[in-house]
């Protein structure tokens, strides 16, 4: 499977990455090379192997349901570009 500049532009948009148009062919080549590497692995028979969701052979530790965080709004909002009435302000988004 290989990617063209159209797919590269779409992936960049989904990831909100700004890329220069003249760099797109190089990204397309590099990303295609990665896909080709993955493609090679398809040759291996994995029918008896369970899919691996995580490289560590451990289970998720669970936490008791207790509230242990206090309000630190002032500290968090000190680094926000704009706040008002306790809210973070962002450029308008309307569906």
């Amino acid at each position: 499977m290989s990617l063209g500049v159209v797919e590269v532009a779409k992936i960049a948009h989904l990831a909100r990455l700004a890329i220069r148009a003249e760099d797109a062919p190089a990204y397309a080549r590099n990303l295609s090379a990665i896909l080709e590497l993955v493609e090679q692995m398809n040759a291996v028979d994995t029918s008896g192997v369970a899919p691996m969701a995580h490289p560590l052979d451990m289970a998720q530790r669970l936490r008791p349901d207790e509230v242990a965080e206090s309000n630190q709004r002032e500290r968090f909002q000190a680094i926000a570009p704009r706040v008002e009435a306790g809210l973070y302000l962002v450029p308008k988004v309307i569906e």
């Binding site: 009435a85 962002v90 308008k92 988004v93």
Partner: peptide, 13 residues
């Protein structure tokens, strides 16, 4: 997201 009353911006809670 709160879309009203923030001078053209959205407020996030």
């Amino acid at each position: 997201s709160l879309h009203e009353d923030f001078h053209g911006q959205s407020g996030i809670d």
